[in-house]
């Protein structure tokens, strides 16, 4: 998703302007000399300024650089899957872990990611399950990280050491 520097600069400029505008809506409580909006205002202006500079520098090689370069993963469905499964499986974790528990969610994510990488589904499942069990034991049972147990909640008392 590489885009031309002019566009990069404009995005940053717009972001800076949003930050600066928002920060002017923050009012100082009581008798403070500088309110909560002071620092974000400075930062927002800085952001807008460097965005402008990047755009102007981009103008110099307007013709040399392509406006938009298709990302590598857009070339095949397989490649897109391998790419998007990474942020996708993190989001899946966020929404599924409370209901399914860590063990099942981790197994699903690991199996899917390994299978997407070209490993045979059964091998991926075995490897995924082993890693999930190992991390569950290490982090939840031994290090007491409060990972959700899902369906195992009622017997989790025996699984925390």
């Amino acid at each position: 998703m590489k885009v031309h520097d002019i566009i990069v600069g404009i995005v940053i400029l717009a972001l800076g302007l949003c930050v600066a505008t928002y920060s002017t809506t923050l009012v100082a409580p009581r008798n403070l000399n500088y309110g909560p909006g002071f620092f974000p205002l400075l930062v927002g202006c800085g952001l807008a300024l460097v965005g402008l500079v990047i755009s102007l520098q981009g103008l110099r090689n307007l013709r040399v650089e392509p406006v938009f370069v298709l990302p590598e993963w857009a070339r095949s469905a397989q490649m897109a899957l391998r790419f998007w499964i990474l942020p996708g499986s993190i989001l899946f974790y966020v929404f599924a872990v409370e209901a399914l528990g860590f063990l099942a969610t981790a197994t699903l994510i690991l199996t899917a990611a390994m299978a997407a990488g070209g490993i045979h589904l059964f091998k991926a499942f075995v490897a995924g399950l082993l890693v999930a069990v190992a991390t569950n034991v290490a982090f939840a049972s031994l290090l007491h990280v409060p990972l959700p147990w899902g369906p195992l909640t009622s017997i989790s008392g025996w699984l925390i050491w």
Binding site: S89, I109, L110, A113, M114, G117, I119, A127, T135
Partner: peptide
């Protein structure tokens, strides 16, 4: 192989 390592790092 990366296909094994990268999902574990993700976890």
């Amino acid at each position: 192989p990366t296909s094994y390592v990268s999902p574990v790092i993700l976890m």
